[in-house]
Design a protein around this nucleic acid. Structure first.
Lengths: 348, 348
DNA sequence: TCCCGAAGTTCGATTTAAATG
DNA sequence: GCATTTAAATCGAACTTCGGG
């Protein structure tokens, strides 16, 4: 390994001068261009690369941000991660990726490891979450700027970036209603999932505004599960039950895209076609939703932007701690967007 | 921050002894249990956590592995990443995730950053790849154990883990043939993609074995593109063209799952139903394939296992360099598996 | 006083060599 | 010589202090 001393020797200057020149430190003002050239040449020639360990040891900076995902296999993650990666890249930060598998022990172990690595910030993707977030309380005192994606939060200990679930729910029902649907089935999210209730609130709000009466017998709930893909199977089963019980409905509003896929499968098994016999709308706009046939009408979360936003907040927080200003938590609630595709159609 | 010296002071011993005890170094044999207890108590009490920068500076180890993905948005990545993460976790390594976006400049920048971080190993997910892998040549001399996933490689500079594309192609056609299909359309991969030709070779091999004649007019190629999702659009367009030209076929074998989705969309637009009017088979078994309706019959790559395998090879390589044994490259070609679902059916 | 450069200290842990009884 | 403990050197870069011209 070639060190700064090697460059010093090669260039004929001291390591101090080399350090000053190569880092373009304030004192570099005083160093004549000839010296700089000589040093830069020597560094180039030897292929000198500063040792980040030594650097970090002194500066106490890692230029690293932790990314904690609760379940990578959730298709929701992909685009969010892209947004996170891209924004970090532009700021020359590198992400350490951890996948907690929705397990408490893994969460704790990873958190410890990240802290040990002196991450300067943390982004937590807590969408399909069945862990107590109090586990993150340790972070507060650690003074590591943290942003939670997809999980609402109050207070000023951590920032949060979520989609406006209530507006999303409203949008979804409004769309179905505008298409003439009146008998609508609902697959709600698991009660223990934070997203579930605001989405339902938006739905009720819209129903009220439209003068639509919600038939309770057409409303079912996904059960709690650690696995985001379980909502497929449950979506299917719940839909099949609804059909078996001969409940009539011309449209179905699913909790998310994956449960919508399940519903579509359930309908297909019963010989019902989307969208001819029944319209289906999802939530999220996961990548597969534009790829499947019929393409899924859904309420889009701007996932890439949310990832980028979370990183932006964390980066700002990092700057705050560097400049010893106070870190202020931000709570963003971004607008969802209705994406009309092929799985919904006008009634009649 | 509490340092080892703080623990030394608190316990009444020197930092040397503290280090020896807490690391259970060889010399710890000579240290009486009482001393150990006292030191451990002090460390516990102060909440001592060793500074990884200082540690790494001395040991020249980072306990970090670089993960380089060529395009995160490729649905192929998800499960591979899960396999990588899980295996690294068990070995107490942490991954730095980089997404090259199939861009040369990004590749080079990230590679430099990873090298600067002194990654001990590198896993490259090079599935949908349009970059010259010679860019990785720098790695050879760096003596960082590297494994490439989804890109065949010879030689002993780097390891590789790929699926047996030829067998996969064979399996796919064999399945369609066994179902009675004789007029089969083929969407081949881009010529510049390494997977394309072995898959086609397997297909031809199977055709020969079955005595099946391949109709060249039913064979189309995906164009080259940096974006893995472009194969959806192209799959659709190529299928529509085939139909417009009134080419008769009862089954379609797509290059991968995403192009199969495109083909299904194309068929649907023409009023053709999968699998009643046309069977479709994909390749990969991406998560969405079991979720869409009809569920896609496909040739599965054991993605999670491949990720785990790649990490296993890299970890072994790391041990080799630590023990100054020679690092030997491994080239794994894993067996694909036919997954029969709903998109294919017996003819007639 | 201003400009330039070097010697020496620091960051925190590990390890070698050596000092105690 | 042995068990027990520690001072001092080391890893590589960055910064503080100081001196010479």
């Amino acid at each position: 390994m070639v060190t700064i001393r090697d460059v010093a020797k090669e260039s004929g200057f001291s390591s101090t001068t080399v350090s000053i020149v190569l880092n373009d430190a304030p004192l570099a003002r005083y160093i004549p261009p000839v010296t700089k050239k000589r040093i830069e040449k020597a560094a180039e020639k030897l292929g000198y690369r500063p040792n980040q360990f030594a650097r970090s040891l002194r500066s106490k900076r890692s230029h690293t941000v932790g990314v904690m995902v609760f379940d990578m296999t959730d298709p929701y993650c992909t685009l969010v991660l892209r947004g996170i990666e891209n924004t970090l890249y532009q700021a020359s930060y590198l992400p350490i990726l951890t996948d907690v598998h929705n397990e408490r022990s893994r969460f704790e172990r990873y958190l410890e490891m990240l802290l040990d690595r002196r991450i300067e910030g943390l982004v937590v993707l807590a969408n399909w979450l069945f862990l107590d977030l109090n586990l993150l309380a340790d972070l507060e005192k650690s003074s590591i700027p943290t942003a939670l994606i997809a999980h609402e939060l109050k207070g000023d200990s951590m920032s949060s970036v979520i989609v406006d679930n209530e507006v999303g729910g409203y949008l979804a029902l409004e769309h179905l209603h505008a298409l003439g649907h009146r008998k609508i089935a609902f697959i709600r999210g698991p009660k223990t999932l934070a997203d579930s209730s605001p989405r339902w609130r938006g739905i009720r709000k819209c129903a009220k505004a439209c003068g639509l009466e919600l038939d309770e017998r057409l409303v079912v709930d996904l059960p709690e599960s650690r696995d985001p893909l379980s909502s497929f199977e449950m979506g299917q089963r719940l839909t099949e039950n609804l059909i078996k019980q001969r409940r009539q409905f011309t449209a179905l509003l699913a909790f998310d895209d994956v449960s919508a896929y399940g519903a579509i499968r359930g309908l297909a098994k019963a010989g019902l076609r989307v969208s001819d016999d029944c319209s289906v709308i999802g939530f999220d706009d996961v990548a597969a939703s534009s790829l499947c046939t019929p393409a899924l009408t859904t309420v889009r979360q701007p996932m890439e932007a949310m990832g980028a936003d979370a990183v932006g907040i964390v980066l700002e927080g990092i700057n705050c701690v560097l400049e010893k200003r106070e870190v202020t938590a931000h709570h963003r609630k971004v607008a969802p967007e209705l994406v009309v595709r092929e799985s919904t159609r006008r009634l009649g």
